[in-house]
Amino acid sequence: MLILKTLALEPMHGYGVSVRIEQVSSGIFRINPGSLLPALSRMERAGHVRSEWRATENNRRAKYYMLTAKGRKALASETEQWDRQAAAIRRILEA
């Protein structure tokens, strides 16, 4: 869900995704490249993201990932599911 949300903002390469998530979460979430790249590959196979090779800001080639329409639907579904789970956890903690 965090990767999909990050890619909903703009296309970016894997390193950019991990940096953005770490920045927005104030360092709480740090994504290991060994976990991120297989996750991006799974999302690409599922049709949630697509990729293309582009030049980075430093003029190096990198694979950029973009959210697809199917990915936007998956993000909406996962966000709804997360909201339900977080509410249930909140109820348990407040009981």
Rank of each mutant, 00 (worst) to 15 (best):
E94M: 10
W53R: 12
S18D: 02
G71C: 07
K73H: 12
S18C: 07
M43I: 03
S18L: 06
R72S: 13
G14T: 08
R20N: 01
V17T: 03
G14M: 08
E52I: 04
A86L: 15
Y64S: 06
G34P: 03
T56H: 05
E80I: 09
E44W: 09
N58P: 02
R50K: 09
R50L: 09
I21A: 01
Y15K: 15
T56V: 06
L75Y: 07
Q81C: 08
W82P: 01
G71D: 11
T56R: 06
R20C: 01
V19E: 09
Q85L: 15
T68Q: 03
S41C: 09
N32W: 02
L2M: 07
G16I: 08
E52C: 08
G71V: 10
Q23I: 04
N32A: 07
E57G: 10
H13W: 14
A69C: 04
V24L: 11
Y64I: 02
R90M: 15
T56Q: 07
P33Y: 11
G34N: 11
M1C: 11
R50A: 12
Y65L: 04
L7S: 04
A88L: 09
E10K: 15
E52P: 05
E80H: 12
M1V: 13
G34A: 11
R91D: 15
P11N: 15
G71K: 07
M12G: 09
T56P: 09
W82R: 11
V24R: 00
S18W: 03
L37P: 00
A46T: 03
Q85T: 14
G14F: 06
A8F: 09
E52M: 07
L2E: 00
S51L: 05
R91I: 13
M12R: 15
T56E: 05
S51Y: 05
S41W: 08
N58W: 07
A95D: 13
A74Y: 04
D83I: 06
F29A: 03
S26C: 05
Y64V: 04
W53K: 11
V24Y: 00
E10Y: 12
A55G: 05
V24Q: 01
E10F: 07
V24D: 00
L9M: 08
E78A: 13
K70V: 10
E52A: 09
G14A: 12
S25N: 01
I89W: 08
N58Y: 10
L4T: 02
G16H: 07
L93D: 00
N58F: 11
A69N: 12
E10A: 14
R50S: 10
I92G: 02
P11S: 15
V19I: 15
E57S: 13
R91G: 12
A95P: 13
R30Q: 15
E94G: 10
A55W: 07
S51Q: 06
A74M: 14
A87F: 03
L37M: 14
E22N: 13
I89S: 04
I89C: 03
A88S: 12
E57I: 13
L40N: 07
R50G: 05
S77V: 14
I31D: 00
W53E: 13
A74T: 10
